[in-house]
């Protein structure tokens, strides 16, 4: 019974609690209580979905990675916008991307990054978690896409999750 009352994901609980305080209009008794209930309930409900924590994660590298991603989103948005407005037909391609990352959390961060940056959407992951299927809107060759993703996103992530 007592383990039902614990916080299995302390960081997630803390983030949920703080997020709820920011979202509600000013901190009050009610928002504190509801925040606590959410911070306890959501991790309990989603417990089974969380992969085990990575052995070592250099989270201080995260801000630099996010800045690179944000910058790429801005740059690539312009190129996609240009492509949409130009009369030229896009040359889409399905790329099988060989993953070097192993941790599920790292892979899902990489997949989300790929989907967020314009021009590429990660469509699927192979059952053995070794390949990622990516749809690129306009690319001259597979290698171009694979190289770009590997140097810009996967390498920093591999550093982070070593």
């Amino acid at each position: 019974m007592l383990d039902r009352l614990s916080f299995p994901q302390p960081w997630l609980s803390l983030i949920l609690f703080l997020t709820w305080q920011f979202l509600s209009d000013g901190i009050s008794g009610g928002s504190l209580v509801l925040g606590l209930v959410l911070a306890w309930g959501i991790p309990q409900l989603t417990q089974g979905f969380w992969p085990e924590r990575p052995a070592f994660m250099k989270s201080w590298r995260m801000p630099a990675y996010l800045l690179v991603v944000l910058w790429d989103i801005v740059i690539a948005s312009f190129s996609v916008a240009k492509l949409i407005l130009s009369p030229r037909k896009p040359e889409p391609v399905f790329v099988c991307y060989p993953l070097q990352l192993e941790h599920p959390l790292a892979i899902s961060i990489l997949a989300s990054t790929i989907s967020l940056t314009p021009g590429t959407v990660s469509a699927d992951i192979s059952d053995d978690e070794k390949m990622l299927l990516i749809h690129a809107l306009d690319a001259r060759s597979d290698d171009e896409v694979i190289d770009a993703i590997h140097t810009r996103y996967e390498k920093p992530l591999m550093e982070m999750f070593k």
């Binding site: 989103i73 801005v74 690539a76 948005s77 996609v80 949409i84 037909k89 896009p90 889409p92 989907s115 967020l116 314009p118 021009g119 959407v121 469509a123 749809h135 809107l137």
Partner: peptide, 19 residues
């Protein structure tokens, strides 16, 4: 509206939201 198939259309809205 303009892109030719489902997968390419997927790129339009997901990106527009980001920027």
């Amino acid at each position: 509206a303009r892109l030719p198939d489902f997968f390419t259309r997927l790129h339009g809205p997901t990106k527009a939201t980001t920027l």
